[in-house]
């Protein structure tokens, strides 16, 4: 009798184990069914191209002798190629000026729009965000018109003061011309992200600070900015990834600023020129991959130094 009971007990245990195993299996299966379609696209259009780029970048095509394996030869060539290096130096310099500027403008606007509630600030919020809806290419085309000597307004405006108009397509000023385009394009988008983060702060914090005699400035500097630090970090990382890949704006303005923007102005433009202009796909892939590496290292170094990795993801 006891034996029988024990036996039945052990068999139910086994049964539950089996059922639980089925549930686990089902969980695995359903999970992969949901993630699978994206996984296939991810493998086919991200992992495969990355692997292929790496493979391509290890070979070199010569006019005589065909394609040969050169291992890191293309990378050695890239990192000693003055055009590539000057392109990297340009985007790094550009990031160092453009990103802080955009974020400062965005932060100032977000703080104003958050603190001052009026019909005008609501309207401003929309208008400042508007450039984000414009494709970067069209934005660059539009600023190209404004910079133009023949039909831009700069000649008129500076003429009022009897000064010659600045030529943003010249070698000296193209840097600032591009900074302006990029700031115009992205500051509003960053402002909206920061504004959304500011709206998420509990207003009772401000009241408590006011009780303690804090001014609006102190509230902004000591409460608001520290509390939206994760959003600031997110913007910094996104703008760093975007700016190092700089392509659309200089590529479009290249036609107008003939002679100032060379085909190898930024690393991405150089890769494009090598691959599609000169059919040098191996070297183009190596440049793309090297640029990807530069981006990866920059972002990780940045995240490491800010040590906020956990709060970001």
């Amino acid at each position: 009798m006891t034996l029988l009971i024990e036996e039945s007990a052990s068999s139910t245990q086994e049964k539950t184990r089996k059922v639980r195993g089925n549930v686990r299996l089902r969980e695995h299966l359903m999970g992969w069914l949901f993630v699978g379609p994206f996984g296939i696209v991810f493998l086919a259009l991200l992992i495969a191209p990355l692997g292929y780029a790496l493979y391509l970048s290890l070979w070199q095509k010569k006019l005589i002798g065909g394609t040969s394996f050169v291992f890191l030869g293309n990378y050695v060539k890239a990192f000693t190629d003055p055009t590539f290096l000057s392109g990297v130096w340009f985007v790094v310099r550009f990031s160092l000026v453009a990103i802080p500027l955009q974020i400062l403008v965005a932060l100032a606007m977000a703080l104003i729009v958050d603190a001052v509630i009026s019909l005008f600030t609501r309207f401003s919020r929309l208008m400042i965000f508007l450039p984000y809806a414009i494709p970067t290419v069209i934005g660059a085309v539009m600023w190209g018109f404004l910079y133009s000597k023949s039909f831009g307004p700069l000649t008129d405006i500076f003429g009022l003061f009897g000064a010659p108009a600045p030529d943003f397509f010249s070698k000296n000023l193209i840097f600032y011309g591009l900074i302006n385009v990029v700031t115009w394009q992205w500051a509003g988008y960053y402002m909206i992200i920061l504004y959304a983060a500011l709206q998420g702060i509990d207003p009772s914090l401000y009241e408590a600070a006011r009780m303690d005699g804090a001014s609006s400035w102190q509230i902004a500097l000591r409460i608001k900015i520290p509390l939206i630090a994760p959003a600031l970090l997110l913007i910094l990382v996104f703008s760093l990834i975007g700016t190092l890949q700089f392509f659309n704006e200089p590529q479009i303005l290249r036609y107008l600023a003939a002679g100032t923007i060379a085909p190898g102005f930024t690393p991405n433009m150089y890769a494009y020129q090598q691959a599609f202009g000169l059919a040098n796909f191996n070297y183009g892939s190596a440049i793309s991959f090297a640029l990807g590496g530069v981006v990866f290292v920059c972002v990780y170094a940045f995240l490491f130094f800010t040590r906020k990795r956990r709060s970001f993801f």
Partner: peptide, 24 residues
């Protein structure tokens, strides 16, 4: 594992994929 690969992919510059995707 696959989720951390996905997070890593957020850092991959989209333009780095254009040339090899074109070749494929």
């Amino acid at each position: 594992f696959s989720f951390s690969v996905l997070l890593g992919a957020l850092m991959v510059p989209a333009t780095a994929l254009v040339i090899p995707t074109f070749m494929m």
